[in-house]
Design a protein around this nucleic acid. Structure first.
Lengths: 123, 123
DNA sequence: CCATTAGATTGATGATTGTCAATCTATATT
DNA sequence: AATATAGATTGACAATCATCAATCTAATGG
């Protein structure tokens, strides 16, 4: 079922040639990153580098599963703006959306956050 | 000694009211973030969310200590551009610069990266 | 079938950002 | 003092981004 960030052109997984929970690359503190590695990580970090999206993400994580209508209020943003942010987060593979009836239910993709932590020099 | 990112107007530490290695906040996956928390984290993530800066950071981490002149070549960017990026990373508290003679020596601030990892849902 | 509701899409606008040429500052060397 | 070198600063420009009003799509309820 097609929803939000899932309308990407290619058939690639969330974003970048790997599954969200695959190992990928060593921490950036271990060895100089390649241009490709840095491009991929930067694209995920760009999705995270916004106050509204960080709070959105934390709400989704806290609620376990949330529809967009539960986000507009707490975040104080318009419906199109929320839709925009959920789309960016989904394209980055950080959340997943599932359409059920009128609502889209968003859930966290914890492995994706774990990948970021690891590449950021995770222990 | 005044160098690069250190020219900020206030007397605050690296960026945000805390020292780089202080505890601050629980992971974003534990509870909804406040607007202030998300602003602070987003500002660090914004500094990280660029391919050139990620590679710059990984080179500094690998070398242990590097002058700007060792960055222009590997990163393929002009001198002002490198200076711009080191400044942003320093303002975010992710690297520290020390002027010695003609050179500025950059070092990683690992606690700052650790803080980001923890807030990103670190174990 | 019509009205309502959730949310995605489009288009426009103001703000931010990455980049570099040109310039400036400070240090080192002769 | 004159020259050279490392790097910071300024100014400009194109590209990207966050935001929202307006519109469109799809599903629900009468």
């Amino acid at each position: 079922m097609i929803v939000n960030g899932t309308k990407r052109s290619t058939t690639r997984s969330p974003a970048g040639g790997r599954g969200a929970n695959e190992l990928c690359c060593p921490p950036l503190t271990d060895a100089p990153m390649s241009a490709q590695e840095s491009d991929e990580l930067a694209s995920i970090l760009t999705a995270l580098a916004d106050p509204v999206r960080l709070r959105l993400l934390s709400i989704v994580a806290a609620e376990g599963e949330t529809c967009s209508c539960n986000l507009e209020g707490p975040l104080g943003k318009s419906q199109p703006t929320i839709s925009h942010h959920t789309r960016l987060l989904a394209e980055a593979g950080l959340i997943r959306g599932e359409r059920r009836g009128k609502w889209t239910w968003w859930t966290l993709v914890p492995e994706r956050l774990a990948l970021v932590r690891r590449q950021l020099g995770g222990a």
